[in-house]
Write a protein that binds this DNA or RNA. Structure first.
Lengths: 252, 252
DNA sequence: TCGAATTTGTGCGTATGTATC
DNA sequence: GGATACATACGCACAAATTCG
């Protein structure tokens, strides 16, 4: 079984070729694996492996019970996480780009802080937080997931306790905190590559295991106190993440 | 075959438990698949699948022909890509953290620009560039790969044509460019999740397909001209990437 | 030095689960 | 609810790498 004659790779290459030739157009469904298996005179599972390669490449898309489709190339959008002179905000995550974005959210105003969140906020695990779940939509399709936590102690009793209700709804952490006298001075974003969980994939309309970037962001006030932390799930297929950084006079 | 009774998951969980209990220590080799298969009374391939799960988790490591080992947990190091008041530099990639880092490099002073590099540098594809390949080492082990390109036209005839030779060797792009009157004002970093290629995995001592972050960085001068662009391969298992961002008075 | 035994890694066929139409 | 299609678990055979006599 030398590498040169691996059936599933040979078939994958041939399928790629036929798609390139236009035998199946964008959005078309391929013949079923059973039929293609007969055509290539191999077991259907070999076709599964071949198509899996093209699915990983992003060329095909399998829909259980329906068929295997030629994927419509979705444009990747730019997400500029920091622009010199225009600091990052939740709004910048999406809405600032053009007018087509929107988001849905739901807030729990008394949610116990999970371990990792408590550590980032500098509170005890289980301490009460305001927890908001976001789904950012483009054309009614979720393209970005986010979870945000704020210590309840910080905003309790104030009009800005809910990020998405009240006078400053949807205005972002920085402005809301300013309203109660908290000056947000800096944010730290930790990025790491990951694979979409089944739940995330389902929400985002991608395949489980697809590449995503997890962004873990924490906002700090002038005293170095964490006032908010968030976790973003950014599918690589839809977003192009970049940071613009100023360069000082010289490096140390 | 309901989810509750999937053999390979049950066995993976049990192996995880036994490792947690210390039955096999860090660096130890597990009994062979054949033996474990007999012990669990399943086909050896089921054990292969179970161990594959733990390998993906980073708990085990398979060595062809030798055995399956309990992986030594390598500490993840912090890589702060931008710190307020201390701009990013190649040195900051590694050396600024502590004294243990070093790097090796090789430079080609007349390398035709590949398509994507040319686009980023704003030159014609195939235009001559100074191309430098870096391997960053900790304890003599490569932990970070980088490729850097500069337009040859920029530095030709100057003493700073080679990043890693001459009077300012290893001093970073910003200072070198300052030497020839080019003021680097800003950098843009594009990050995206990816999987390690076989070549990269081999160099980095990780497994092919392991998660990595690709960072594509471009330096611009005061006229908005690209003066250098680089591509970094950062294995997730070893690095924790973060950006520290200033927050302005209020958001737009 | 070399080759046989051992061990991990991979391809592929069969059987079955599960979603869709 | 039945037929169809994709998804996955598992068993077998074999390849590749290592180990050891």
């Amino acid at each position: 079984m030398s590498p040169a004659e691996r059936q599933y790779q040979r078939i994958a290459a041939d399928l790629r070729r036929r798609i390139g030739l236009g035998e199946w157009q964008t959005g078309d469904v391929l013949p079923s694996r059973a039929k293609l298996a007969i055509e290539y005179a191999v077991d259907a599972n070999v076709l599964q492996r071949a198509q899996q390669l093209l699915i990983t490449e992003g060329l095909l898309e399998g829909r259980t019970g329906s068929g295997t489709y030629v994927r419509r190339p979705v444009p990747r959008r730019a997400m500029v996480r920091s622009r010199i002179g225009a600091p990052v905000s939740f709004r910048a995550d999406l809405g600032a780009i053009d007018g087509t974005g929107s988001w849905e959210s739901s807030t729990d105003t008394n949610s116990p802080a999970p371990q990792r969140v408590a550590a980032r906020l500098g509170v005890e695990p289980g301490a009460p937080t305001v927890h908001t779940v976001y789904e950012f939509l483009i054309d009614s399709q979720p393209v970005l997931l986010a979870n945000s936590w704020e210590p309840l102690a910080l905003t309790q009793g104030s009009p800005v306790i809910c990020p998405e209700y009240g006078p400053l709804a949807g205005q972002g952490v920085v402005r809301r905190m300013a309203e109660i006298g908290v000056r947000v001075e800096r944010a730290v974003e930790r990025t790491r590559p990951s694979r979409a969980t089944a739940t995330q994939a389902n929400l985002l309309g991608v395949s489980a295991g697809d590449l995503v970037t997890l962004i873990e962001r924490t906002h700090y006030d002038q005293d170095g106190r964490a006032v908010e932390t968030a976790e973003l799930v950014v599918p690589d297929s839809r977003w192009d993440i970049s940071y613009e950084l100023p360069i000082g006079r010289q490096e140390s």
